[in-house]
């Protein structure tokens, strides 16, 4: 299986805090890859490393065979035209209508005539079910609609790779269902490669062909959903079943309970 993205032994830290210590993973082409892990483990950082917005301190991040960190400015921008990212907040431009938001990358990067752009935008909006909402401003959309509009914008240029940053966070069950369906169907119909960063296990397990689980600044498991269900690591099992206590303790590191209480009385 060919890989569109390969991350090789990456070290990254934010300030003094290490985020990654030797992370390696692969994103197979044409598949939906789910990236999971507890909050604050740097899942979004992974997307920014692939997009070249952050640079790893050691190791390599390769996109379609190119080392992203070593690309010059114009090469990096060329590479970014082949990928797109759906931000957690949608990141629609608040001073443009939904229609203009979707048209934006087309107007920026192509010389197409207004007519063709209008047709493409309508097709993209149709595919996310928002063709009737083109005239609305982002502030008039519900959270789920904003995310779908942002999705239409991110597929406007027909990218090869699309990265979803927490697409299900804060959505009601209906829009969650819509998004799950959209991600799956877009991946199949457009021949995309998708990376879904999330901690909604059920949704991710239902659409992902390939899973990566982060914990303790490293990748602790990688493989298909079945492989992971039968994984023998306790940590993976705790994460997949959502148990409250286990290798990831319920209690923050502290002195033994009774010592602490008695110590306070002294």
């Amino acid at each position: 299986m060919e890989n569109l993205v390969e991350v090789k032994d990456v070290f990254f830290s934010r300030g003094e805090t290490p985020i990654y210590e030797g992370v390696s993973l692969r994103i197979p082409r044409g598949k939906v890859t789910g990236v999971m892990g507890p909050s604050g483990c740097g899942k979004t950082t992974l997307l920014r490393l692939i997009g070249g917005q952050l640079k790893a301190h050691a190791g390599e991040v390769e996109f379609a065979g190119q080392n992203v960190a070593q690309l010059g400015r114009s090469d990096l921008y060329e590479a970014r035209k082949r990928m797109s990212m759906l931000f957690q907040s949608g990141a629609l431009f608040s001073d443009l209508t939904v229609f203009e938001n979707v048209a934006f990358p087309l107007r920026e990067h192509t010389q197409l005539s207004d007519n063709i752009i209008r047709t493409i935008v309508k097709m993209k909006l149709q595919s996310v079910g928002l063709r009737g909402a083109g005239h609305l401003y982002p502030s008039e959309l519900s959270g789920g609609m904003a995310r779908r509009a942002a999705l239409a914008r991110s597929i406007a240029l027909d990218p090869e790779l699309i990265m979803y940053d927490e697409p299900f966070a804060g959505q009601d069950p209906i829009s969650m269902g819509m998004l799950v369906k959209l991600i799956k169907s877009l991946n199949e119909t457009l021949g995309l490669t998708s990376i879904v960063v999330s901690h909604d296990i059920h949704e991710v397990m239902s659409i992902a062909d390939h899973l990566v689980i982060f914990a303790n600044k490293q990748v602790i498991a990688e493989g298909s959903p079945e492989e992971l269900r039968n994984h023998d690591s306790e940590l993976v099992q705790q994460f997949l079943t959502g148990a409250a206590d286990g290798p990831v303790p319920f209690h923050y590191k502290s002195n033994p309970y009774h010592e602490d209480l008695l110590g306070g009385a002294q």
Partner: peptide, 12 residues
């Protein structure tokens, strides 16, 4: 609201 980041990711 990540609009600046999103511009960057759109190669703008």
């Amino acid at each position: 609201t990540e609009q600046l980041s999103s511009l960057e990711m759109m190669a703008v």
